[in-house]
């Protein structure tokens, strides 16, 4: 069998879109971080797809690098979140938003 590559990219697009919606619509920072993870995952899937299309191992290598990036981002993001939690009791990004104006 082969997975039609178009369908694979439709999956990527849908996943990425879900992530973006989450990032834009949710106000809770934790959920926004999760949405960001979904988006990064979609990008990773895209590389696996492309790699399998060309039958190269390079796609998977980029995948490995992407999860490294994701790990570092999550680590920093959660550390920030812990620190922010000390300042505000909830994680509402709107309440964080005294900057705008």
């Amino acid at each position: 069998m082969t997975v039609p590559i178009e369908h694979g990219f439709v999956l990527v697009a849908l996943l990425w879109a879900i992530g973006l919606i989450g990032l834009l619509a949710r106000k809770n920072t934790l959920f926004m971080l999760m949405s960001m993870e979904i988006m990064l995952n979609a990008a990773a899937l895209a590389f696996i797809l492309a790699g399998s299309l060309w039958q190269q191992a390079d796609g998977q290598i980029i995948y490995i690098l992407i999860i490294t990036v994701a790990a570092a981002e999550v680590g920093l993001g959660l550390a920030l979140l812990i620190r922010l939690r000390a300042h505000v009791s909830d994680l509402n990004i709107d309440k964080l938003d005294e900057l705008r104006g």
Binding site: V3, N41, I48, Q55, Q60, Y63, A70, A71
Partner: peptide
Amino acid sequence: CFYLLGAPFAAALQIIVYAGAI
């Protein structure tokens, strides 16, 4: 999905590193 696309190593990493560690 990764596994089915012919990337078993990536699939394993996804489970171990992503779903596991992160």
